[in-house]
Each structure stands twice: as structure tokens, then as C-alpha cells.
């Protein structure tokens, strides 16, 4: 309204620019730090203009074995993070899609029991039951494995509920038509339902990829060797209490830890925002 009448039309822009500056500042300073040497950072008057060691620092971080990480380079941690994030995202989507399909498109004894059992898991985030979940995972021999990193986190009520909500809006005529054409339930799932769910799948992928990549407590517990840990967890080991923290590498690692989830969010922005708001309502 104000913008139409003309007066004060600059005020929203001013506030937004200030907001952006505040939100962006920590990321920017970290980026600047990742282009300097540690003595430059520790000089007491660190510049806010990027330094000249960008290529050198990132190359060192990615390829050099880190003594703080038992000689494992960051590239390995990134690979672990990627495997974990992709397994969680795709695994959750797969098992949720199938179970929502069964619950919505079939009538079978125990259907509501299944639904409620899945629904209840909404109420128990992994952090709450962390120690017993760790013990179960250890009993199954999954410590220091990709399975241990991903499988305990792939059961999710959110994805199932989202698919269920969407499946309920599919018109009955579509199923009747499919049946008249002689398509069985699996054929319908593959040829009709899956293509129709593309937007939901894309949105969910973004949310779940970010969720998986950013996990902290779980990978911290379930991995003991540095070569199996994730990038987000590995950074903490670099922050030693003494003065030996290689800040330039830590900052490069922080940027590397932010880049993949940020890229996924930005590239798939259109679906992500719609999906996020729909998924949680």
C-alpha cells in the first residue's frame, strides 16, 4: 500500500537490506577467512576483503590429509556426507511412497494400526531416543557403516503423511480407468501415480537432502573412525582448544559444508518453498 502511495517506499528496502546484511555477514566473513592464511586471520585486524589464497586453501582442505582427522582429507568426509544425505533422502522417499500407497489405495486388516504406528514416529525425534537407538544400531553391527549412518534415520512420518495427503486428492475415475484398461496396482503406481507425484518428490528431496546432510548428533555417535565421519561432524575435530587451529582450513571446510545443501535449495527453490509450506501444514 505504502509503495503505491509513494511515501516511505524506501523503508521496506532499507529494512530488508539490513536484514540481508545481518544474515549474510557470518557467511561472508567465513568466506573471507577461507581465502586467507591463519596468521592473516589471527593478526587482530582481519581484512574484510577476500585474500589471495582461495585456490590454495580449498585444494589443501580437499586433498591434504588432516592430522586432526587421523590423516583423512575433507574430500572423503564430503563423500560420506553425500552418501548419507542421498541415502536418507532417497530411502525416505521410497519407503514412504510405498507405505502411503498401501495405506491409501488398499483396504486390509491392520491398515489403521500401520498408519498410527508410522504417525507416532512424528513425536520421537532421533535426539530424544539417542542412546538406546545407538545401542540397537551397535547390536546390529552397523557402527562405522553407511547403513548405520542412514537407515535409522529413514523412517519418517512427515514424508508418508505428505504422500498420503496427495494420494487422497487423486480422482477415483483415474483408478477406475486404469482398472478398465487392465492395469494392476503396481502398473498404476509406476505409470500413473509416480509421474503425478513429480513435484512432491522434488520438494521432498530438497527438504530431506538438507536434513540428511546437516545431521550432527547421530553421525557423531555412530562413527568412530575419521574416514567414516561426515563433514559437518569433522569440522568440530578441527577446532582444537589450543592455538593450533588451522582457521583458514576450518573456514574452507565450513564453506564446503554449506555449499551442497545451499546449491540444492537454490537450484530447486521453486518446488522447495511450495513443498516446505505444504509438507508442514
Amino acid at each position: 500500500m505504502e509503495s503505491r502511495s509513494g511515501h516511505l517506499s524506501w523503508l521496506p528496502h532499507l529494512i530488508l537490506v539490513l536484514g540481508l546484511a545481518l544474515v549474510g555477514f557470518p557467511i561472508y566473513v567465513t568466506f573471507v577467512g577461507s581465502t586467507m592464511t591463519t596468521p592473516e586471520i589471527l593478526s587482530g585486524h582481519m581484512s574484510l576483503i577476500p585474500g589471495g589464497h582461495f585456490v590454495e586453501n580449498y585444494l589443501a582442505a580437499l586433498t591434504q590429509g588432516m592430522p586432526q582427522l587421523s590423516g583423512v582429507p575433507v574430500a572423503r568426509l564430503m563423500l560420506n556426507s553425500l552418501i548419507m544425505a542421498l541415502s536418507i533422502a532417497l530411502g525416505k522417499m521410497l519407503i514412504s511412497f510405498l507405505s502411503a500407497y498401501a495405506i491409501v489405495f488398499f483396504r486390509f486388516p491392520g491398515r489403521m494400526v500401520c498408519f498410527w504406528m508410522i504417525f507416532l514416529t512424528l513425536m520421537l525425534p532421533v535426539e530424544v531416543r539417542i542412546v538406546p537407538t545407538f545401542q540397537v544400531t551397535a547390536n546390529l553391527g552397523l557402527i562405522d557403516t553407511y547403513g548405520g549412518l542412514a537407515i535409522p534415520l529413514i523412517a519418517s512420518a512427515t514424508a508418508t503423511l505428505l504422500f498420503r495427503q496427495f494420494f487422497l486428492t487423486i480422482p477415483d475415475e483415474l483408478i477406475e480407468a486404469a482398472r478398465l484398461d487392465g492395469a494392476g496396482p503396481l502398473r498404476f503406481l509406476w505409470d500413473v501415480l509416480l509421474p503425478l507425484s513429480r513435484t512432491n518428490l522434488a520438494a521432498l528431496f530438497v527438504i530431506l537432502f538438507v536434513y540428511g546432510w546437516n545431521q550432527y548428533l547421530w553421525p557423531l555417535l555412530v562413527t568412530n573412525t575419521a574416514s567414516m565421519t561426515t563433514l559437518v561432524v569433522g569440522i568440530k575435530s578441527m577446532l582444537t582448544v589450543d592455538a593450533n587451529t588451522p582457521w583458514h582450513l576450518v573456514m574452507a571446510m565450513a564453506i564446503l559444508a554449506m555449499a551442497p545443501p545451499a546449491a540444492v535449495v537454490l537450484l530447486m527453490q521453486r518446488w522447495f518453498v511450495k513443498g516446505l509450506v505444504d509438507a508442514e501444514k
Partner: peptide, 12 residues
């Protein structure tokens, strides 16, 4: 731009 911190892990 304001969306970006969503992608950042709490630890980061």
C-alpha cells in the same frame, strides 16, 4: 538470500 541459512547445519 534470506532462504540461505535454512541450508546451513546448526553445527556449522
Amino acid at each position: 538470500a534470506l532462504m540461505l541459512p535454512y541450508a546451513v547445519a546448526p553445527a556449522i
